[in-house]
Design a protein around this nucleic acid. Structure first.
Length: 747
DNA sequence: CTGCAGCGTTTTTTT
DNA sequence: AACGCTGCAG
């Protein structure tokens, strides 16, 4: 036990060995925060201060939760499966399954993922004859989720204008629809669980007595509802007196809050400190990850943000390499130079005798997924293995969603979302007209679509025959799979639904077929991996008859991202900056550092948008251990057209002394590409623009007395009529200027 | 009812 | 460029 304490530095040990008090650990990037949290749990258990039973540990991603379980198991001999370690959603789901009656949910309630929710909202609008131009479904989803995440039901939602009143009414309709169909969206898991605990006093008391210690990782990413959920279990002191309940141990970094755009509230850190009278704020400021120059550069950037809790990372590992800047003429050049540089690192670096880097120790990061394509192209040409994270995830693929919908309908005939997804897929002659009639009928009798279809089928008529056939097929499936083990249920459904046959007949169906096979595998693995879990909530769930199928479907909804092929192979790592949070690499390339892309142009319209972009940049840079590259391209193909860009503000925010602009020519001469290394070199402009005087051209950097530095992005007219469009970056935006009057100085 | 052509949109993302 | 959705012709 003292063994795992001895490996900690002083503040880390201080945090781990705090007595049973509320505590906040402000931990910078690479300072060992997750380690502190895990060691804290191990220490509490090893010293006999509590049993695993008394611990609740919560994170945001399944990956982090699994890592926590695995690392904890190496420190203390406990069965981590029996512990409450998981994501907010996972734990809330567990609570709701165990107490579904009290929560007012059916035992087999299904979980709607974001796509399901959107489909449900669209269907709602259609049924109510609402113009989806005036009430865009996406926006309505956002409206609903934002309210739920603030703990606000439709009945309590405020509206001061007609449009909002309508949206609140739709929110109410949506709630009713979900209840009718026995489904819960992600936010609903949290809200229902919160309401369950807040209105059911005996239950709340039970869990309050059970959990003595609640530990939260990435606390800066919690939203209001999650924080309130935590407050129900770990009561804040009242009138200075301890209110009982668990002790809350929160770990986080306000500088790494990058999810405000979806409701995360950094302010929770300050609120926690105040409301819980936290006397123990421990700062972990020693970084064990990055070399000095990298850290200094990251610190230089983040200090431009106001309103920080304050913290300065340091390291004793030496300055290391300067941060390299790669300037490219085009996105293609940028990609080529990056790939070349990465290739060099894998071959042993520029210095004599430098150790080669493993490909999976090199990461290519970007602001948006669309940027991966061109990097992939260059990597592919160079024959370098790479792996792209993110993008479409396994359980979100259409063939998988279709298969799951059949399974869902077997479990719960009221699931209209599932019904609509598959009633005519593969196509079986049930068109929109038939479905609309069915929906009208179902609405009148207040029954689900499936029940309506079963009734309709008995009736007779032309479209009734095909509906009856569909219902017969589902019933037959239900009968055939009744007592089968899960993997065989899945196999049977894939065949009997006609999904397999459909993709077999499709020209491009090969990959989809493989994914269906993979779904069968996933079902097998799920059965063999989920051993009996000894836990009262789980036991309660089991006895109330939660089938293996329901558990599998829940797993599919909550852990959609966990099924990525090609894991563990030596390959270059490509991902968005968001996806890179929590990871580290020897060498990191942060790409596309251009005004409008990173920081993203849409961020300027959001409150504190630029600050969040800056935190994102901070996260990106602090992923690097030894080498950090920042690249930008003067032109980039976006949405099918070429855009001209200025270098990102963030490059300017780094002291020049820490930077070194990479000159690939001196490292590896390639005279045939020389011109592409200088953004200021004469370029390949001239797509049908008017003749411009005095050496002005598209892509030319110019200076304007009022608007400052900019770049010419378009031109039209000639002579005294000619105008140019200039992008002045975030400060002044993009403007059309008449050349006759505007005083533009070429730079 | 089905399939296709044209249109509009396009950040980040976990659950 | 690429995908999804809508509207129209077969």
């Amino acid at each position: 036990m003292s063994d795992f304490l001895s490996r900690l530095n002083d503040p880390q040990r201080a945090a781990v060995t705090l007595p049973a008090v509320h505590a906040l650990v402000l931990a910078g990037a690479g300072s060992g925060k997750t380690r502190v949290l895990i060691t804290r749990i191990a220490w509490l258990i090893a010293t006999g201060q509590c049993s695993p039973h008394n611990v609740l540990a919560v994170t945001f991603t399944n990956k982090a939760a699994k890592e926590m379980q695995a690392r904890l198991a190496t420190l203390v001999p406990v069965n981590t499966r029996s512990m409450w370690i998981g994501t907010f959603h996972g734990l809330c789901n567990r609570l709701l399954r165990a107490h579904h009656r009290e929560a007012g949910l059916p035992a087999q309630f299904q979980i709607l993922d974001a796509a399901d929710q959107l489909a449900a909202v669209k269907r709602l609008l259609k049924n109510l004859n609402i113009d989806s131009e005036r009430f865009p479904p996406r926006e309505l989803c956002y409206f609903i989720n934002a309210h739920k995440e603030e703990g606000i039901r439709a009945a309590q939602a405020e509206a001061f204008d007609d449009h909002t009143r309508r949206r609140v009414a739709l929110y109410a309709e949506y709630e009713a629809q979900c209840r009718r169909e026995g489904v819960a969206d992600f936010a609903e898991l949290l809200l229902s669980s919160y309401e369950l605990l807040s209105r059911n006093e005996p239950l709340r008391r039970h869990y309050r007595e059970r959990f003595r210690h609640i530990l939260v990782d990435e606390f800066q990413d919690t939203n209001l509802l999650q924080y309130r959920w935590l407050k129900l279990l770990a009561a804040a002191p009242e009138n200075g007196a301890d209110a009982g309940g668990a002790k809350l141990f929160a770990v986080g970094d306000d500088d790494q809050s990058i999810y405000a755009f979806r409701g995360a509230k950094v302010g929770n850190m300050r609120d926690f400190e105040r409301e819980f009278r936290v006397e123990n704020v421990i700062r972990l400021e020693q970084n064990y990850r990055s070399h000095g120059n990298i850290l200094d550069a990251a610190n230089a950037i983040i200090k431009n943000n106001r309103d920080r809790l304050g913290k300065n990372l340091w390291t004793d590992t030496g300055a290391g390499e300067p941060v390299r800047v790669i300037e490219a003429f085009s996105d293609a050049d940028e990609a080529r130079m990056i790939v070349e540089e990465a290739q060099m690192l894998m071959n042993g670096g520029p210095e004599e005798g430098e150790a080669p880097l493993a490909p999976d120790q090199i990461a290519l990061l970007y602001r948006s997924n669309a940027q991966s394509r061109i990097l992939e192209h260059q990597l592919f040409s160079a024959g370098i293995p790479y792996r792209v994270y993110g993008g479409l995830r396994f359980f979100e693929r259409q063939e998988i969603k279709h298969a799951l919908a059949y399974l869902r309908l077997l479990t719960n005939p009221d699931d209209d979302t599932a019904f609509l997804r598959i009633v005519n897929f593969p196509t079986r002659g049930i068109g929109m007209r038939t479905v609309e009639n069915l929906q009208a009928g179902a609405a009148q009798t207040h029954s689900s679509l499936y029940n309506a279809a079963a009734g309709e089928g008995r009736g007779g008529g032309r479209s009734a025959a095909s509906l009856a056939a569909f219902v017969r097929m589902i019933e037959e499936m239900r009968k055939q799979t009744q007592n089968l083990p899960l993997p065989q249920i899945v196999a049977h459904v894939l065949a009997a639904s006609g999904l397999r046959a459909h993709y077999l007949a499709e020209k491009e169906g090969q990959e989809r077929l493989e994914n269906l096979d993979e779904l069968e595998n996933a079902a097998s693995n799920f059965v063999s991996e989920s051993g009996w879990i000894e836990d009262e909530a789980q036991a309660a769930a089991e006895t109330s008859g939660i089938s293996a199928l329901t558990q599998f479907l829940t797993h599919a909804a909550l852990e959609a991202g966990d099924h990525q092929a090609g894991e563990g192979q030596a390959a270059l790592q490509l991902m968005t900056v968001h996806a890179a949070k929590g990871l580290e690499f020897d060498a990191v390339f942060v790409t596309g550092l251009e005004q409008g892309l990173f920081p993203h142009e849409n961020s300027v319209t959001e409150r504190d948008g630029l600050e969040e972009e800056r935190r994102l940049m901070y996260v990106a840079m602090t992923r690097a251990r030894r080498r950090l590259y920042l690249s930008w391209a003067q032109t980039r193909l976006l949405h099918g057209q070429t855009r001209y860009n200025l270098p990102s503000l963030f490059i300017e925010e780094i002291p020049a002394a820490l930077l070194s602009t990479l000159n690939t020519i001196s490292l590896k001469p390639r005279p045939d590409r020389e011109e592409t290394f200088r953004p200021s070199a004469k370029g390949r402009e001239g797509n049908a623009t008017g003749a411009l005087p005095q050496g002005l051209r598209i892509g030319q950097n110019v200076s304007h007395p009022k608007f400052g530095q900019g770049v010419i992005v378009a031109a039209e007219g000639s002579g005294t009529e000619s105008r140019v469009q200039v992008n002045f970056g975030s400060r002044a935006g993009t403007k059309w200027l008449a050349l006759e009057y505007a005083k533009l100085t070429p730079l």
